[in-house]
Design a binder for these strands. Structure first.
Lengths: 339, 339
DNA sequence: CTGAAAGCGCTAACAA
DNA sequence: TTGTTAGCGCTTTCAG
């Protein structure tokens, strides 16, 4: 295989200087005659020249890439549709604007070991933290301390950090919408099924449900389980039902959990929503189907990704974030599983 | 904000030359005394030095990154769990070996416009093609013509390409397993529900079902629909039922489709599998649940990603692919939806 | 309109 | 053991 062509080889073939070739490659019209432009373009075509990004990056001090760190204890860190929609939105928006997305799935506590942090290879970092609040704060501080622009997804704004922007959907508000829906019927006890690892968004949802339920004197229990495993979910719920009896409403942390719950309840001879109301969260065009159809909240994960990318691109362009926080409002998807 | 530290600033602070700092940074033990090493490490720590990847890349002629192009007409190119598991496996394996994953979701026919192709920014490319065979071949040729190592996911081996490796699961074999399972019961007519855009893996599954069904004189119909939309799936199936009556078996292209089908059939008063057997494909720890539980095939998408990454890393290391093709065998997940 | 040249941060060969 | 230096591919300033 012959040598990869460079500006130099193109210049030689076209009989011009590398400066001229550089201009043509970068579409700089001023200072290049049409005749030479055509010449150069022909040489580029013939040699199959592709600009070397490292050379350019080194010169302009820009990597033209953004790093995304998804903190998750599971190696299948892309299992949740929220995450995948987020990544898709981020990726599309970045690619459209000539930026690359460098993807990293990191285990909790191992963020500092990833080459995203250890090396300087991106212009900005997007962080999707999980774990306890303190762990998340530590992660934010770690990245922020690098002196690179940072966008934090789904977590609440923190004051003492520099050059940071927070992008999230209004998960607490969404939970309040669902809770209000549920309260259209008499209700004394609710149970919420949540993942055993803490996610900021789930904290916000819990806060939303608590707020409404407290006001109405509804008791709120919790079932914690491995959300990545449908068996663990149904086992957890079955165990609760055996111990504490049937609640008035079962709140899923997300649609997958709610659907699994409906299956279990139905298998136990309970009717949804007559015997138990069930709600989900984060509906997507294709999360799955259930009967009755889920009463849930439409996720805006994809737009979150687009928003995060736009904020980052704008920050890189203008030197500062224009807004400290973006909170996307949420909408109810009415279904037949509640009230 | 002060200047980003470089080898130079570290060297200055530690009172040594940049060559020495370079050695320390890269963990080269020979030719650096312990005393200076400690000095240098202190300076690195104090300044918060992070090596600039562009500088290194330019020098060593390696980007230390792999590009993944997922060809999909939908902007939500990560919607399918097969894809997300593939990406997770690829990403983890690359990250573990010091490589980055540059993610690109590209529209069919637009591959040539992506900066992954236009610029030289990765050491190798991983391609997940879709569309008609000819389109896919064009995509492979485009990438292969770049002179970069290429791994093609899920498509069949093609002879005339240089420096290419094919990695896929044995989708045809998996389909034959399912078909054989279905044939345990009398069966005259089957219908397969497939996406309206062609995927190589689905072609292989169709071939597998055809082979077994033909041998047993089973007629095979097709329903084509937008697989990303559960409404479109149920509409498509409903339409078929109205037109052609109830088949003996309904074959889903994947689990999501099969689950939607079970819901529709049940809603129509048909019992699965008594009235209609249903099979899925590509089961994951959490695709969703159905009753009865799906008879399906366990996907090996995550391992496919790991395999692809390993093959690529090995190719980069040794200068040539050691194997032209990797085909991972598939296993049946017995369920109650068939036979 | 075109070209010469400096230098971005880094590695590695070689000299001291 | 340590330092000097050339040069990877590119952009940009400045001179012609």
């Amino acid at each position: 295989m012959r040598e990869r062509p460079t500006l130099h080889s193109v210049a030689q073939k076209a009989g011009v200087s590398i400066a001229t070739v550089s201009k043509v490659v970068n579409g700089i019209t001023s200072g290049v005659s049409d005749a030479t432009r055509v010449q150069v373009e022909a040489a580029i075509e013939e040699l199959g020249y592709r600009p070397n990004r490292s050379g350019r990056s080194l010169r302009v001090q820009r990597h033209q890439a953004v790093g995304l760190a998804i903190v998750d204890p599971s190696p299948r860190f892309l299992a949740d549709p929220f995450t995948t929609n987020l990544v898709a939105g981020l990726c599309n928006q970045l690619n459209t604007n000539g930026f690359g997305l460098l993807l990293y799935g990191v285990m909790p506590g191992k963020l500092g070991e990833s080459s995203l942090i250890r090396q300087s290879e991106v212009d900005a970092i997007c962080l999707n933290p999980s774990g306890e609040r303190l762990e998340r704060l530590a992660a934010m501080e770690l990245v922020s301390g690098l002196g690179q622009p940072l966008v934090v997804i789904q977590d609440r704004s923190v004051d003492n950090l520099q050059d940071v922007c927070f992008v999230r959907q209004d998960d607490q508000g969404g939970a309040e919408l669902l809770a209000a829906e549920v309260m259209k019927r008499p209700c004394r006890r609710a149970v919420m099924v949540i993942a055993d690892i803490p996610w900021p968004a789930v904290e916000h949802r819990v806060a939303g449900f608590k707020k409404v339920f407290d006001r109405h004197g509804v008791k709120l229990d919790f079932i914690r389980c491995d959300e990545t495993n449908s068996q663990a979910i149904t086992d957890g719920i079955a165990d609760y039902l055996d111990r504490s009896g049937v609640p008035d409403v079962l709140v899923g942390q997300n649609d997958q959990i709610a659907i699994a719950a409906i299956h279990l309840l139905t298998a136990r001879g309970l009717e949804v929503p007559r015997d138990v109301a069930v709600t989900g969260y984060n509906a997507f065009p294709f999360t799955g189907v259930s009967s009755p159809a889920l009463t849930t909240i439409r996720s805006r994960a994809y737009e979150l990704g687009v928003t995060a990318a736009s904020a980052l691109l704008d920050r890189l362009e203008r030197g500062a974030f224009q807004q400290r926080e973006y909170v996307l409002p949420l909408e109810l998807v009415p279904g037949n599983s509640a009230p």
